[in-house]
Design a protein around this nucleic acid. Structure first.
Lengths: 237, 237
DNA sequence: CGTACTCTTGACTCTAATCAAAGTTGGTGG
DNA sequence: CCACCAACTTTGATTAGAGTCAAGAGTACG
């Protein structure tokens, strides 16, 4: 099971990333829960361990501190759809109703900060700033969701794969220089993109043969950012 | 363009449906905006008219009063993904960030109540109850989004079509007796399900030949609710 | 009554899934 | 340290499901 240990509020170091300029980027998200720090509990999960189960009463919400977490919806016959990959700084579970309608599983060994949802609700009633942040967060998730519907509904296999690499490059802050270190397996990628593992492999290989990326197991280097953008139908901006 | 007329707050009749027992069902949604009634403007849109454009500054949010509205995301090459169909009582646009990341178009001639988003934000700061309702609304949309990702990523064409019919039956309150009156074209359904119009037609025809549904243009009768549930991979509950 | 739609059906194609097998990699224990 | 095993990844051959192209059938409307 999940190994959790009370944090007495003193480990207030928030998760962050090295930005392109070397500064720490907080991503704006976990900040929102700072006022709840005293109610936080640190939770650790081993690789492949379930953190919350589909259909479970939604008592808690989480912030990923380290590692990678996936949200998963399962069908009776075993078909699986990965909803999102959560990286340090990402929150989940606060947007549940009575119960979680997905399960969350550790992709790699992960550390999370767990907050009581009830406390969050109560605090949001008093703290407009927090309430606003939650609304903004919802808006971002909804936007991401619409983007993903376009991907799942209308993009070809190779477009999905290119889009995925661009998304991960963006989120992990990998530039043309440093490669992306993918924490998840090909199976996870396939279930995220609505494809099979073989199609994901072939797509990656194809991009490699084109010279667009380099592959070294879980380490993907972007050699031609522009070509990848075109392959992923990136909107020009 | 959009034809709008100021409502002076006296037309406070809210949109509703006839429930199965004949009572009016408010769906809980437009209620949330009651305190903003004085800032509301009634907007009418003809069939196929754009209500908000993709990329447009998000000044307003809307409640559908009558008719049907679709949200659409478009790719440069014309591929289209319908995000959702909005029926009377449904809200949209409040969950935008700076700008709307989708366009909203009238499927049929429609009437909407338009509210300034700014006013909504300000009111939500003061009114916890409203803020809570907005959070709940977000949670519902996110949940629906995850369900749709499963549909788009993992369900077969016929499963998608069956799921769609069940969804519309549920939302319009059509039982085994009364048929569903679909307001949208086959093209819209295809773009909602990530399929082509031909595949949607064939899928419907197939269900008809099985005796599961009856088709009469836009009027679909459900003859075997159970079979439709199985075809749509309905989770047992 | 004819025109312009939308919807339906048919024939064929092609993308991605399936089935199968051969690399890789990493871990364990001799 | 090396051999073996299990899991994951990659590649290949074949199949099936949905897309594309094309044409016909209904309907609505002027």
């Amino acid at each position: 099971m999940l190994c959790s240990m009370a944090s007495h509020g003193q480990s207030t170091k928030l998760p962050g990333f090295q930005g392109a300029d070397g500064s720490v980027v907080w991503m704006g998200k976990p900040r929102a829960l700072e006022p709840l720090a005293s109610q936080a509990v640190i939770v650790r999960a081993d690789r492949e361990e379930e953190i919350v189960g589909q259909g479970e009463a939604a008592e808690y919400c989480y912030v990923v501190v380290s590692g990678c977490v996936r949200t998963v919806r399962l069908m009776e016959d075993g078909r699986r759809q990965v909803g999102e990959f959560l990286l340090p700084g990402d929150m989940f579970g606060w947007e549940a109703l009575e119960e979680h309608d997905f399960s969350a599983e550790a992709v790699t060994a992960a550390t999370l900060r767990r907050y009581p949802r009830r406390g969050l609700e109560l605090l949001a009633d008093r703290d407009h700033e927090l309430a606003r942040r939650l609304r903004e967060l919802s808006a971002r998730k909804l936007r991401a969701g619409r983007e993903r519907m376009l991907l799942l509904g209308r993009k070809s296999a190779s477009e999905r794969i290119a889009s995925f690499l661009l998304e991960m490059a963006e989120r992990t802050g990998a530039g043309d220089g440093s490669p992306i270190e993918l924490p998840m397996s090909r199976t996870d990628i396939a279930d995220y993109l609505g494809l099979t593992i073989e199609t994901v492999c072939r797509g990656l290989t194809h991009l490699q043969r084109q010279g667009t990326i380099s592959i070294e197991r879980a380490r993907i280097g972007i050699r031609d950012r522009r070509a990848l953008g075109v392959a992923g139908c990136e909107a020009l901006h």
